[in-house]
């Protein structure tokens, strides 16, 4: 099997730690049921998935749920991954997919309360944190609230470009959108976000 050959090559190189391996090499080990490799992979990409989900959904608790769900699915579906050097795009795509599903589910469960109101009522994540962290969280919450004013398909591109610093081609790959559409979404998302920011500032 191709996978077992690749795993052999990885192991004979004798890297210092699993953290030195590429994403694809780690996934090959994961496909061989290596939990330590999966843990290394998760530690590497957990902030990326958590960040995208939290910003997209405007809710840290939901973002955390999505993050856990994505990694559990990744483990469960480990046999389906084909190593092609695009693990990050694959992961981002999975994350966005879950976010859209959760967003839809949340709308159906709580149609009467708008997302903006929910974000405003969000309680502090942990009141025992130092004041500078609290200030940072307030700032982030304000921004998340504003992001919720941007349509989902524009929002996801904004988050990937400016929060996670993904390149336009990588965003196109992760979202399965043509490059030109990514640029359009980015442009329109920026326009909408600016309007929302200006409206917030004036009020």
């Amino acid at each position: 099997m191709t996978e077992s050959v690749s795993i052999h090559l990885v192991e004979t190189r004798a890297p210092k730690t699993l953290g030195d391996l590429s994403d694809d090499d780690l996934m090959l080990l994961v496909k061989a049921d290596r939990r330590d490799a999966f843990e290394a992979l998760m530690r590497r990409h957990q902030p990326l998935v958590f960040g995208i989900a939290t910003r997209f959904l405007g809710d840290r608790a939901l973002g955390r749920d999505v993050m856990q769900d994505v990694f559990l699915s990744l483990w469960r579906e480990r046999g389906r991954y084909k190593a092609s050097g695009r693990f990050r795009s694959y992961l981002v795509s999975m994350t966005l997919h879950r976010c859209h599903m959760v967003s839809r589910n949340r709308k159906s469960q709580d149609r009467r309360v708008s997302a903006l109101a929910r974000a405003q009522e969000e309680t502090p994540h942990n009141e025992r944190l130092p004041i500078d962290v609290v200030v940072e969280q307030e700032r982030s919450r304000g921004l998340r609230r504003m992001l919720l004013g941007v349509p989902e398909h524009h929002r996801q591109v904004l988050i990937l470009r400016f929060a996670e610093d993904l390149g336009l081609e990588e965003i196109a790959e992760a979202t399965s959108l043509p490059l030109g559409t990514v640029k359009s979404h980015l442009f329109r998302g920026l326009k909408t976000l600016r309007k929302v920011v200006q409206k917030e500032s004036s009020s």
Binding site: R35, F38, E39, M42, R43, Q46, P47, L48, F50, G51, T54, R55, G63, R64, M67, Q68, F71, L72, W75, E136, S140, L143, L147, L158, I159, F162, A163, D165
Partner: peptide, 18 residues
Amino acid sequence: LQHDPDEFKDEAAALEVM
């Protein structure tokens, strides 16, 4: 939109998954 690199590190959540 950019964030503190540690803002979304969550060791506890990762541990739960493992």
